[in-house]
């Protein structure tokens, strides 16, 4: 067979027929099989380490699977899930996760929008500003959280000092880790710090794709800069807003690093002395690798998976609805 049959679009002369005949099996192999060889590493590796564990997780969740006692196996049925429903630690962690999630997502995306709007102008040093706001995104969460842990220290912490500067000084300094609300705010601050710049760049990129005549047309109505942002820019970049809402839902509900490192003793994975800020991802880690109960940890992972699906879906609807009304 000749190669010209396979590549009819070519205008080049075919290679000498002799060469083709002696190596034709090789070319056939190269045409038919090599494409699959090229894509196979992805499918094999992702299958083994990505998809299979997620499915297998469902099997582990309905079995007894303990690391400390391998003899205790067998089907648990829905036992792990029943236990979940009456597990105070789980509901507490779920509440914490949602509390931190809301305190971080809403301000994060709003501030990112405003910063993106600032960057979406004719500026000197465009690249400098863009790279600058990405510094938090690159900084390891483990490292930055250690800094924030000192900011939010009870004694001589910078956050308390700042509060006293603006007139909110307390008799006894605020112990940020002690209460739920204050610990949530501290952790949400860390999450916001890390992700605002990143989201601002996502918004900026979408803003720059908006055709200029959209703005020119709206100028007739006499829209000011602020109204321009909310009336024209935000509705125009709505798909990216939905995308960032989904991204921060997936990320926020799996929050692990910040609450881990904010703890006075990170290795305990307890999320504070009374689990004030223990998240679900942290609880999964504790149940699986401190309590050594993998079956129950797998059940929790599945529950979290369902919750993420649900919340991501709800948020998408909500964001669409809010944007669509304008």
């Amino acid at each position: 067979m000749s190669l010209t049959e396979l590549r009819p679009a070519s205008h080049r002369p075919a290679p000498p027929p002799k060469k083709v005949r002696t190596r034709s099996w090789l070319y056939r192999f190269d045409n038919k099989t090599i494409p699959y060889v090229f894509i196979s590493p992805f499918f094999i590796l992702f299958g083994i380490f990505g998809v299979f564990p997620l499915i297998f997780n469902g099997v582990v969740a309905v079995r007894n699977w303990r690391l400390d006692d391998p003899t205790l196996t067998g089907w648990a049925g829905l036992g792990n899930f029943e236990r979940l429903l009456s597990d105070e630690d789980f509901w507490n962690a779920l509440g914490n996760t949602f509390g931190i999630f809301i305190l971080s997502t809403v301000p994060q995306l709003l501030i990112a929008l405003i910063i993106a709007n600032l960057l979406n102008r004719k500026l000197r040093g465009t690249t400098f500003w863009r790279i600058g706001i990405l510094l938090p995104y690159l900084t390891p969460v483990v490292a930055s959280t250690l800094v924030f842990a000192i900011f939010f220290a009870r004694d001589n912490g910078m956050a308390n000092w700042f509060l006293s500067l603006v007139g909110f000084g307390q008799e006894t300094p605020l112990d940020w880790r002690a209460q739920k609300w204050s610990a949530w705010i501290a952790i949400a601050t860390m999450v916001n710090w890390k992700w605002i710049g990143y989201n601002a760049l996502l918004y900026l990129s979408a803003m720059q794709a908006i055709p200029k005549d959209v703005y020119e047309a709206a100028a007739v109505d006499g829209a000011g800069a602020w109204r321009q942002l909310w009336r024209i820019t935000v509705p125009m970049i709505q798909p990216v807003v939905v995308f960032t809402v989904i991204l921060s839902t997936i990320g926020g509900l799996q929050l692990f690093n910040e609450p881990m490192m904010f703890d006075e003793n990170p290795q305990s994975a307890s999320g504070g002395s009374a689990h004030q800020f223990q998240t679900i991802a942290q609880l999964i880690y504790k149940v699986g690798w401190k309590d050594l109960d993998l079956g129950y940890a797998a059940a929790m992972s599945w529950a979290l998976f369902l919750i993420i699906l649900l919340v991501a879906g709800l948020n998408t609807l909500l964001t669409r609805r809010i944007g669509g009304d304008r």
Binding site: I39, V59, F305
Partner: peptide, 23 residues
């Protein structure tokens, strides 16, 4: 197959860590 790749973009594989540990 490309659609499969795009779909796997949305898989939060972190949720499979327990089973990944067993693997």
């Amino acid at each position: 197959l490309l659609v499969v790749v795009v779909l796997t973009l949305t898989v939060p594989s972190q949720l499979g860590i327990v089973a990944l540990y067993i693997v």
